[in-house]
Design a protein around this nucleic acid. Structure first.
Lengths: 275, 275
DNA sequence: AAGTGGTCTAGACCACCTA
DNA sequence: AGGTGGTCTAGACCACTTT
């Protein structure tokens, strides 16, 4: 019953709620019609229909879509709504909008794709199977590389924390991170306990950062790291470097993850995959 | 002069074009005001201002933004426009909108980031420095792996094409691709000449595909590939696998690129980086 | 001049959440 | 009940491109 309320969601009490008479300038599209009483918004319905047409090749790659005005007209909706529908396709990278010329179906160009870290999120969200083990934590003098990354004076002290992340009792991610050793900072205390990793990933409410930069690299395991991850030396893994900046734009933490590609499949899809 | 025309772009012929009198329900925001005569749309100006406030920590991570209505009110714009402004922030991943609750500044969670292939695009766009050399092309019986990837009957023939892509006279990308050997298909002819690579990347107008899937993997060079790319055996590279599907959802082409990370830096930024 | 996408308004109603 | 985001309208005007 609670669902049933949702079903008659779409507004029906507007000026023109006629359903039998199509009204002027409508109903000359022979195929799909939109259902104003549906729980799916009109713009989503239009968007779906247009996507299907692209999928069927009715609107071929490179060709022009009908204008926003004519789409609005043929479906009996306002221009803003048809625009919103096309906006969905544009966001999904299916079409390009060019002012004054029209909207065009994109050709598949993989250099426009991108890879998200959703799969990694799944690993971290599965908290029952997750275990984070600190295998090393100490204060040390920064190496030259770390000095550069954290913009430190020569000879500065930094905190080093090494972690091993287990999923299903198996080690899957190795992390190492560095931060300036400022005993006063609340940052340091937290680091030894929850840290960038658990803090930022596990909603631990520790994120007074303004911005961060990630860099993804291919890497092969050295002897030590391979042993930790229970893999063979030389095996290929992802290396995910991270630098976090505070609100003064000072880099506060730097480190990297080593992750097996099985635990982090990076997949990107182009074109029409659904409907 | 042509630029000057652009400068007075913003419409001024609307009902209330008063510039001295602020009008009702405006001018109680003490800081920034928007310039209706600016060439920058109002929604972009609002968006920029809100972004700056996030950047300064005025709107802290996790906190709620003013409601769309109150933003519209305080800047003297319509609700739709303020909504559009906030939409920009949402698209950029800076805020989350939750119906009935409000709009909240996101905490930095790197599992929500993604990596784009823009850098690769630059390599391919630089056509003067680009050279594509076919180093092998033949018809052969599909291996078990290729059979599976292209959903072929056992014993099917496929076309194999190996390429080496030079940038600045140096080999930077190695590509191998397979496609079903159908002598009738226009696909095959094109493949030996322009192919998936040049076709899809270099605007060669060859893209009658419905969809495609890419997969990014870490890999290390074997002896042969290292020699081709002028690198050391065992060096870490990106392996970018691609599968293209035609409009009948049949996989038509499969292959992969080997790319040095220097030629394809994968960087992702979170939070406020500009303004 | 006509057509296209882009911006904007001033309203309206809806679904959801918190109180 | 009141506030918040989400959808929608019927217009208007603007900037750009093509004819």
């Amino acid at each position: 019953m609670t669902k049933a309320i949702c079903m008659k969601r779409r507004k029906n009490g507007m000026k023109n709620s006629i359903s039998t008479t199509p009204g002027p300038a409508a109903d000359f599209s022979e195929d799909e019609k939109i259902d104003k009483k549906s729980y799916l918004p009109a713009y989503a319905q239009i968007s779906r229909i247009l996507k299907q047409r692209i999928s069927k090749g009715i609107y071929a790659p490179g060709s022009r879509l009908p204008s926003e005005a004519s789409i609005a007209n043929s479906f009996g909706i306002s221009a803003m709504t048809s625009r919103q529908a096309i906006g969905i396709l544009a966001e999904e990278g299916l079409v390009d909008r060019i002012q004054g010329r029209g909207t065009f179906v994109k050709r598949l160009k993989f250099t426009y794709s991108s890879f998200g870290l959703d799969s990694l999120r799944k690993v971290f969200m599965d908290r029952k199977k997750l275990e984070v083990r600190i295998i090393n934590a100490k204060v040390m003098t920064a190496s030259e590389n770390i000095e550069k990354r954290l913009e430190l004076e020569p000879g500065s002290s930094v905190i080093l924390v090494e972690r091993l992340i287990f999923h299903d009792k198996k080690p899957v991610i190795y992390q190492i991170s560095y931060a300036l050793a400022e005993p006063e900072s609340p940052f340091v205390e937290t680091m030894l306990d929850t840290d960038v990793l658990t803090g930022l990933l596990l909603e631990k409410d520790f994120s007074s950062f303004k911005k961060a930069e990630l860099r993804l690299l291919p890497s092969s395991l050295n002897k030590k790291d391979a042993a930790l991850l229970n893999l063979k030396e030389g095996e290929s893994v992802f290396r995910l470097e991270h630098t976090y900046y505070d609100f003064k734009d000072v880099p506060s933490a730097f480190g990297w993850f080593l992750i097996t590609p099985e635990k982090m499949p990076l997949i990107s899809r182009m074109g029409v995959w659904h409907d």
